[in-house]
Design a protein around this nucleic acid. Structure first.
Lengths: 231, 231
DNA sequence: TGAATAGTGTCTGTTAGACATTATCCA
DNA sequence: TGGATAATGTCTAACAGACACTATTCA
């Protein structure tokens, strides 16, 4: 880690805004900073790029996220890079910021495997004051998630691999923060041809059982035009 | 500039994909690299971030672009950050990449003021092999410009401040690479309420003169939600 | 008056929202 | 059979593409 501060040294970090659903509401993963600056305060999971270990910025983001939370999310993409002389008291710094989505299954298994990780899920409407410029990063991430959700299958990454139509519908509503007509929504997803039926798989209680769906194999890639597939 | 290469030093540069119109076709500004690596070869205008001079990454991009081409573009936004250990032979590096738009007027005055700048305008369908991973950066920039043009007034930055409807129409067609119905296009721009008439200002030859328009003052800001206004 | 470009009007097929209806399960 | 949720159908108003038409200038 940089201790001296010659003219040409610039701090390069990665940060991740990781979204998940809990109680049908959109949450974000936050952790307490172990070290100065801002020791003990809330922050987005993040850390230095290690050029010996990290092939590229996405690999760095995955490594850092794994080390801080134990989670390897099924979706990760670059968000924006915040780079200036004021955002970190240690000096001119770059935050290669990413946003990621994780479903309850992966999240739960990560928590079960290593309950010692100090992270919390916080409802997106109740995010506390964060370290550095992380509130700004979070705001940009939430906006980007909502924008992209209106024309992509992104919210499906918040659900388990198989899900019902009602679940997708509800998830989109919670992510976007608006009500969506059930019929029109179903029509749209159908004609976009992004989901496939899990034949025979149905779930339900004391009522008509619902068809289970999953995202078609080729669709996931369509969403990651700029990115490489995750390791 | 870094000569030694301790474990924690990472090269941080800014690069700019600068678009302009010439002969009604979309061009990109390229310059010859003055130094190794890739000395003498084509590259996007770029350079090191100077943390003493540059307040943030956009300021760095503007300074570098001005120093390499003499141009200060009316539109600049961050594109993506390319960051890995392979893109630069000198080691692990970050390119804070931006894309920018400039109109013929600003371009011409920059060229007139300092004809010594070694840059060229190259048609976007005839971009040569570039240094580093700059071809990849260019591809991403062109895609982003086209995507964003379909729902924004971005192409207007390629035109002088005042322009006719025919000019905007033609510009959009050349940027997007497809034909657009004149009537439908006009309807859309009208109902989006992004242009205002320059009262009384009309131009024309031996035919009906055309109304001059300009982008409404508040619209420019709508496009720069993530960015700060340029200095 | 004709050539040339500017600008408007109309028709039509498609689509999204609103809402009604039918379907299928369990108790 | 009734309650509950799943899934589909219908009506309508708004919209986009295609294209025809009118308007205005100069030579």
């Amino acid at each position: 880690m940089p201790k001296t501060d010659p003219d040409w040294t610039i701090i390069v970090t990665v940060d991740v805004v990781l979204f998940a659903l809990r109680d049908k509401k959109l949450h974000v993963v936050l952790s307490r900073r172990p070290n100065e600056p801002f020791a003990g305060q809330w922050a987005l999971p993040g850390g230095y790029v290690h050029k010996q270990e990290d092939a590229d910025s996405l690999a760095a983001a995955l490594r850092v996220l794994r080390s801080k939370t134990g989670i390897t999310p099924p979706y990760l993409e670059q968000l924006y890079s915040f780079a200036d002389g004021a955002r970190d008291p240690r000096g001119w710094s770059v935050s290669l910021s990413n946003f990621a989505l994780v479903d309850q299954t992966v999240l739960a298994s990560a928590q079960a495997a290593a309950p010692g990780f100090g992270f919390d899920l916080v409802e997106v409407n109740a995010v506390p004051r964060l370290s550095f410029d992380h509130n700004r990063i979070f705001d940009v991430a939430l906006k980007r998630l909502r924008d992209k959700s209106s024309y992509s299958t992104l919210p499906c990454y918040l659900l388990p691999e198989q899900f019902t139509f009602a679940q997708v519908h509800e998830t989109y509503e919670h992510v976007m923060g608006v009500a969506l007509d059930k019929s029109a929504f179903r029509r749209k997803l159908t004609e976009m041809d992004v989901l496939e039926e899990c034949k025979g798989q149905r779930v339900g209680g004391a009522h008509r059982p619902a068809q289970l769906f999953k995202v078609k194999a080729d669709v996931a890639n369509r969403l990651r035009l700029l990115e490489r597939p995750l390791a």
